[in-house]
Write a protein that binds this DNA or RNA. Structure first.
Lengths: 367, 367
DNA sequence: TTGTAGGCGTTATCAC
DNA sequence: GTGATAACGCCTACAA
């Protein structure tokens, strides 16, 4: 009992497949009589339209790809949720891809997604495969970067305001009297890492504090690397009085290290983390964090992508709109930055109540 | 510059599309000369096979659907990762669907996935839509339940050993001297909830403790409902000395409630949670939890589904294997249960070192 | 108001 | 060893 096709429905209803198609898509008038006959036939046969055949014909799949490093990182979950909610509302589905920060996996997935004819892609790029991305953009393939971007690629990007978030966090620590602040940075070569480090430097400079290389430790954005980096900071002769961990995983690593070494937080060591979580407000020490607007980042990225896809469709209909094409590409350079929020809790010690929130969802801004 | 097709490649290489197809799929011998001509042409044109056309012809998309309640729940992230790793290794992609525990969303997604001709589906069912699921199974559509199952539907299910995990947790508390143990249960009507409650009752019964309805609070598997339930338990005249929260979100809610009420854990109240997390070992109180083998659950579910899909393909080839069909359906009743691990930390007080781990990944067992 | 027929890009069946 | 050619299930001119 192979699945019923439009032909089956047409036969049973005594009309042509054309009519059936028009009933389904409401794309031209069909007499009341025929329409109900078709609907009955569909019900009787349990007819489900074949989206694959439709896609082949229409050259659009109503499916988008989402490429992130690792879904197991809680940072991405709300983000994905934001993407999915918007996509779903627009009738699109999501194909999920984990790159694990590996350029080869990224490359392969890009290939697969192309072959599966997805209508567009949202990517947190690894930093490599520049040529591939460039080629896609040049071909007018709808794509949006998220969380990070690739320098020199004219493609919309939805980012957190990493520099400012970092700046606020460090300024907060300085305001509490900290003078030696260790920072554990994430994967090198990725824009978010660079920006967070820049915010740290800016805060120091603005308050006339020296930049000490000894206090900047490289992490790999993983729990264990955060732990190791924290241990190194603790081993310093001139130990810092505060640690700024620039992602959630590394923050966990830092807390483990403190725990192992019997260093109390905030009494002996202040800590600020990047990324906020539900548990941060339920367990001790209550963590001060830079909260990224993750859900919104996903939402906005998806909305942007939907817009790109729609534009492309229209451009295609209108035929040789070469100028429109260029305009699109110019507009595509947009970088949308969403503000972070410093959530002050007790892990830095001092007055946890005076919430120095820096709530400021920045408007979309061209760069 | 529309994407190059096989026809373009064939023309450029001076061969037929048949030959091109065979070169790509290595499905019959092609002379060295022609093969290299084809490969050159493909490279020159940047040819990417169109998977949609292929799918239409072959009636298989190498895509599976994954329907869970909410990707933003950290419980699911490792699970998804397990599914994706296996699927990807087998050349399959994943379409992600959030049902939010809403039967209507579940229904709609099932429709969409059918239409997109996915080769199979992994579902954490809401508990409704029984008829739909039954029809799918009867049609031989490859499907695997995960986390929960639907009674009476002959479909493989990959579950955690909820009852035993719960039993171990409660026994542990009893062993520490607790006599009144509150339990906050999750969504009603879902098998995992029932099983966890059963484990609680079993532990009480085995130790000769009374079952007091007052101590069983309904939660809705969300943070806030966990908080409210905990507040109710705290307000009881005969306050329990321990709380067992039967999922991760509700555990967070419980900790918040304790915090608000100034109740210290473990000193004034012992807590055990279901689901383990990285942060559970880094923040205070270090939480005692029942760890589910989430990654493995995803992995095994995906492997099971891949097997179903393969079987179906073979059955189809062999033609009218009516008997095989029945055998498959009988085998499909398999329930695979993976053991949970009690991770003892300090949140119950007492000797945190004596790790009463109940590590026991149960073998696949027919039910 | 409805129907006919061609084609989307592949693969599978023949035949040479 | 290789190539025509007919599907796969749907949409959409074009025709009536």
């Amino acid at each position: 009992m192979a699945a019923a096709t439009m032909k089956d429905v047409a036969e049973r209803a005594g009309v042509s497949t054309t009519t059936v198609s028009h009933v389904i898509n409401q794309t031209r008038f069909v007499s009341e009589e025929n329409r109900s006959k078709v609907q009955e036939a569909m019900k009787a046969l349990g007819y489900q339209p074949n989206a694959i055949a439709k896609s082949l014909r229409q050259k659009s799949t109503n499916t988008i790809g989402l490429m992130i490093s690792d879904i197991a990182n809680p940072f991405f979950t709300s983000l994905i949720r934001g993407v999915e909610d918007v996509a779903n509302a627009a009738g699109f589905n999501l194909i999920l891809c984990n790159t694990d920060e590996k350029p080869e996996k990224e490359y392969t997935y890009l290939d697969v997604l192309q072959q599966k004819q997805v209508d567009g892609v949202i990517v947190a790029p690894t930093g490599e495969n520049l040529d591939y991305f460039e080629a896609l953009v040049d071909n007018g393939f709808p794509m949006v970067f998220i969380d990070r971007r690739l320098e020199g690629i004219a493609c919309p990007a939805v980012l957190a305001d990493n520099e400012n978030g970092s700046y606020e966090a460090v300024s907060h620590l300085i305001g509490l009297g900290h003078r030696r602040i260790g920072i554990i940075v994430g994967l090198l070569g990725v824009t978010s890492t660079t920006e967070r480090l820049r915010g740290y430097q800016k805060a120091l400079a603005e308050h006339g504090l020296p930049f000490d290389k000894e206090l900047v430790l490289p992490g790999k954005s993983k729990v264990e690397s955060g732990r190791e980096a924290a241990l190194q900071l603790l081993a310093l002769k001139a130990r810092p009085s505060a640690i700024f961990a620039t992602n959630n995983q590394m923050t966990i690593g830092v807390m483990r290290a403190l725990h192992e070494q019997g260093v109390r937080c905030p009494d002996d060591m202040a800590v600020v983390g990047f990324d906020d979580f539900e548990w941060a407000s339920a367990f001790r020490p209550l963590l001060t964090t830079v909260a990224q607007p993750v859900y919104d980042m996903g939402r906005v990225a998806a909305e942007t992508l939907m817009a790109c896809i729609r534009n492309k469709g229209e451009a295609g209909d209108k035929g040789g709109a070469g100028v429109t094409g260029k305009a699109d590409r110019a507009g595509a350079k947009q970088v949308i930055t969403l503000g972070c929020t410093l959530v002050v809790r007790e892990s830095c010690g001092a007055g946890g109540a005076a919430a120095a929130t820096a709530e400021s969802i920045a408007d979309a801004g061209e760069k």
